[in-house]
């Protein structure tokens, strides 16, 4: 059995005509008996009708032209951004080519190796200086007297006399 609250829950489906026929009939029968709910439904229907009959707003006459200009600007902007990259790469490769040509023509790079008689073969070069003897390094052993005494020696001896053992591990 429908009441006012349950009926209002069906409002949307009623407005949009998505109720099954039995429920729709039941609802319409209920609306005949409930004036407040009937008013509410009529207002809801009227609100929707008002929304649907709102005037249609259209773009201005210049709209198409402005859009066309924006698209042209976008396309041109795309071309502009791609040109500098191309320009830079052309300049870099041109520079490299010029540098290579300069080095080829004005330096020895690229010339055939010359077999000049003045050039000494590497095998004949000696690193030893003639007439000089190599120095001989001798190992020396220090005197016993020159070795410094262990500073702890005296203390260890004294502790041994007292029976103190600081060296071995405590048990």
């Amino acid at each position: 059995m429908l009441d006012s609250d349950k009926a209002k829950m069906l409002l949307n489906d009623y407005i949009e005509d998505t109720l099954d026929p039995a429920t729709r009939n039941e609802l319409e029968a209920f609306l005949q008996t409930d004036a407040e709910c009937r008013t509410f439904f009529r207002e809801a229907m009227d609100t929707r009708r008002r929304l649907q009959s709102l005037s249609v707003v259209t773009p201005s006459e210049q709209f198409d032209e402005v859009l066309r200009q924006r698209i042209v600007a976008y396309v041109q902007e795309g071309e502009k951004t791609s040109h500098p990259k191309r320009g830079v790469s052309v300049m870099v490769s041109g520079g490299v080519l010029l540098a290579a040509l300069y080095m080829f023509f004005f330096t020895d790079i690229g010339m055939a190796p010359s077999h000049d008689e003045h050039v000494m073969p590497a095998s004949t070069i000696s690193t030893a200086v003639p007439g000089m003897k190599p120095a001989v390094q001798k190992a020396t052993t220090p005197d016993k007297a020159s070795i410094p005494k262990d500073s702890m020696e005296t203390n260890i001896r004294k502790d041994a006399q007292k029976g103190i053992d600081l060296i071995s591990d405590p048990k």
């Binding site: 773009p59 709209f63 859009l67 924006r70 698209i71 976008y74």
Partner: peptide, 9 residues
Amino acid sequence: EDILQETFL
């Protein structure tokens, strides 16, 4: 209209 332009763009 501005938003419509932007939408189509």
